[in-house]
Design a protein around this nucleic acid. Structure first.
Lengths: 353, 353
DNA sequence: AAACGACCTGTTAACGTTATCAGGTCGTTT
DNA sequence: AAACGACCTGATAACGTTAACAGGTCGTTT
């Protein structure tokens, strides 16, 4: 019927208006359900719109309305359940309020981080949620965007700005408690896997590890801290994975005085470490105890099930979305809001004295 | 200097033009590096633009140019490495050609699938890559978009359309070979975890399983096929996870005549199954052999390491991007292209006679 | 009978950008 | 000296939509 000849040019309001014998404005009113339109007119317009397969032009619409009902989310690696859960939480809240979420991934490189900010800002998203790791250049660009009045909320990014809200988990405390847990089990020789001493000092859970050791009078031994980054970009190390954990653990196993317990940067790293330990014919937790981080679904299905630190990931996403919506609808930029969520140590069978 | 008073209104080309004493068009030329501009003019414009912190308006630009240099990617769950790898491959190729990637996630619900298509189409992405599972409504909407001339490429979606290219892995064959591998090891009683018989018959790797059984004269036993979906939406089952694998395996273990081998829908499901087997005090592969699917990084770090089927995921993303770019630049809609990549059985220690 | 408000429709002018055309000034070639 | 092309700049008119205003017709209230 309508497919005599699919022309190049997309259908516009004007086309519908012409066909239906009304003004474009009336069509707009019908399609947006705004203002008065006679029921017969509405029906007719809708019929024509359907027949012509009309899709509204979000560019024109956004340009005129000065908002797009769209929010951008910048993630690093999307491979890990952490990022996925965040995105879910964000989407959940946004959807309720009629916003669409566009995700950009920056694979943990500063250059791509900037590119993502710019793309989203240029396409005039109404707000931006940023969950990538901090970097000088990235922070500077974010400051610019915030200065321009774009609502921005940060998730777990180590960057303070008066105009951007922050949502985070207390990973310092989480790391502290994980380490303290191992200490309380009698361990004195506790390794950390998943960081480069030269570049990764900013990691909160690692600082928690250091502080716990200090507070309990244990020495920090540099050769117990292993595991470089995946990333090609020195400034922003990649998400630590199984192979980092595996390699790191093997390195630790070679030490003359090897650790009796290990704190892995995250659960995947922990799984890699478990694999190296098992391969070496050692038992967990009898020979080596291990703690992960994040409590991904996998963690309860390893053998042995993994002691880990759970952070309320989806909740962080939800709150971030809420903060952002608040900024978006506010007439005046609201005061900065910050929410730090508590983590929870989940003790399973991978740790014991 | 420039921060006397950050006004609400964003800076426009006209603002720069006024400050620099030139016409907006000249500013446009400078910023797009098109046409001739005297070097002094260029410098001056750039200086002013920088000072005013100009960001171009992608909406206006896209509206005028009738393209946005933007591509949309629709994914289901982003939690799994499969989706992440796809996205990486897509991005890799797009970036080289100056396109930005916006990702929408639809959490495996038809309604959200449609919403994602619409959002992206309305915002006038130049093309669309769809990697969610097929559904009647979704396919219909895609047909409309294709009919409207929007370039579309499908990844592993069970939907044929003359105007959309397809990239996929030969999961039927992959499933066949995984099953055949088990059969060749002498197994006759082979379970499948991760599907609902009522709704999931469309899964290729499962069909491969069925065919392999048939070809080798083995009966298909319905009570060996377990594992429902996560999804709330009947039409589009969720990504099968550890808990599905765990629950499914426990169900299989309860059978009077329990299977000696199990084919899990994907590696996460397999890990859950492994966990249930271990918990029951059985050994892998001596008591029960197990095969996963996807070869995620995790697979080589389970104990025992997992036999699985590797599909060239990133490559699928790359090819999809290539197909799409070809469609985008083409003056006339090019003929349909289809690329089915081969899978590879990766034998590790979770399988034996 | 005038005034009012609810209902219905249309016209106009943007939103910020760029394609296109038009109009210049040069220096070089014929 | 005329013609040409390279260089540089600007005015104009869209792209498709909607906010704002204006102008109607009714039925009901004062």
């Amino acid at each position: 019927m309508s497919k005599h000849r699919e022309s190049k040019r997309p259908v516009t309001l004007a086309d519908i208006a012409a066909q239906a014998g009304v003004a474009p404005m009336t069509v707009s009113r019908v399609l947006n359900q705004s203002g008065y339109v006679h029921v017969d007119t509405r029906e007719k317009v809708l019929r024509v719109a359907r027949a012509l397969n009309y899709r509204r032009n979000g560019l024109a619409r956004g340009l005129k309305r000065q908002r797009t009902d769209t929010v951008g989310l910048v993630l690093g690696d999307i491979a890990n359940p952490f990022a996925a859960e965040l995105a879910r939480g964000v989407r959940e809240r946004l959807e309720e309020r009629g916003y669409t979420l566009f995700i950009c991934i920056s694979e943990y490189s500063v250059k791509e981080d900037l590119a993502a900010f710019d793309s989203l800002a240029d396409h005039r998203v109404d707000g931006l949620i940023v969950a990538t790791r901090a970097s000088k250049l990235g922070n500077d660009r974010l400051s610019e965007l915030i200065g321009m009045g774009i609502p921005v909320v940060l998730i777990g990014r180590d960057f303070w700005h008066p105009g951007a809200d922050l949502v985070a988990a207390d990973n310092h405390k989480g790391g502290y408690e994980a380490t303290e847990h191992l200490i309380s089990l009698g361990h004195k020789n506790i390794g950390f896997i998943g960081i480069k001493l030269t570049s990764g000092m900013g990691l909160r859970r690692f600082q928690g590890y250091l502080e716990a050791l200090r507070d309990h009078g244990l020495a920090v031994e540099e050769n117990l801290i292993v595991g470089g980054s995946d990333g090609t970009d020195e400034q922003m190390p990649g998400y630590s994975t199984e192979s980092i954990g595996y390699d790191g653990m093997r390195q630790l196993l070679k030490l003359k005085r090897r650790p009796t317990a290990v704190f892995a940067r995250n659960d995947f790293t922990a799984v890699g470490a478990v694999s190296a330990i098992t391969e070496a014919g050692l038992r967990i937790p009898e020979d080596i105890a291990i703690v992960g981080y994040d409590d991904v679904p996998l963690a309860s299905h390893t053998s042995p099930p993994l002691t880990t630190v759970r952070q309320p990931t989806r909740e962080q996403g939800r709150i971030a979305a809420e903060f952002l919506l608040r900024r978006i609808v506010a007439a005046q930029p609201p005061p900065r809001e910050e929410k730090v969520l508590q983590c929870e140590l989940v003790v399973r069978e991978s740790t014991a004295a």
